[in-house]
Amino acid sequence: MNARQSFEAIRALMRRAINELTRVPGAAIPGVLAPTIFFLGLTSVFGSLTLLPGFDTTSYQSFLIPVTLMQGAAFTGAATGVNLARDIEHGWFDRLLASPAPRPVLLAGLVLSASFRALIPATFLLIVAFAIGVEWPGFGGLALALVIVMGMGIVAATWGASLALRFKTQSAAPLMQAGMFLAVLLTTAYAPLELLQGWLQDIARLNPVTQVVEAARQGFIGEDITWAGTWPGLLAVAGLAALFTFMALRAMGKMTA
């Protein structure tokens, strides 16, 4: 298969993945609403945390928005894993495996569609957030946040896909969701590092996603976007995506072994 044929195949698989949203009435609603509900809810509940000494941001909403954006992307990505598990259970994936399309093409279609789908809840969330007064992060800050959203969509989708291909059952869904949930929240999601409880501080320091949260947060909390504050986050996204892609492709290879 040449590059053009591969591209066409990826496009066709992406189009099919989008059907899950466009052709199932109401299917898009929970995925779009959930991050916004979490955002509004968590900021209402924990908003007073900014009063604590050591919390330099005055708006908890601006502090939390990058995290909720990433959470939305993570859940969209995990849903891709669940859908793949269903496709495997129903035998649909055999149809793809029996075709001569290269295995990475089969994965790319799913994963890239997750990356674009992640923009849907993000857009809705940002509109609501700006409407209630979240600080404008500047075009650079917004662009960086959206790149990270798409990147986290890929990370979550490759993670979900690797589990789907490994376990071949929708029963693995909680693992897909919980894994991403923990990855995003075992970070400086709720408060700056110094204000976290000791055990969470230790985990957040080691968790590469903390770098992603911090990178995405720069513009929203009024900091200048610096390369020094950005590259660790981008590297973490790229590294995780590469790791999970490798795991997914290996699991796909094992399916026919």
Binding site: M1, Q5, E8, R16, R95, P100, A101
Partner: peptide
């Protein structure tokens, strides 16, 4: 669509 997808997968 299904037939077309299958055709695309076969290049």
């Amino acid at each position: 669509e299904l037939i077309q997808l299958q055709a695309t997968l076969h290049g």
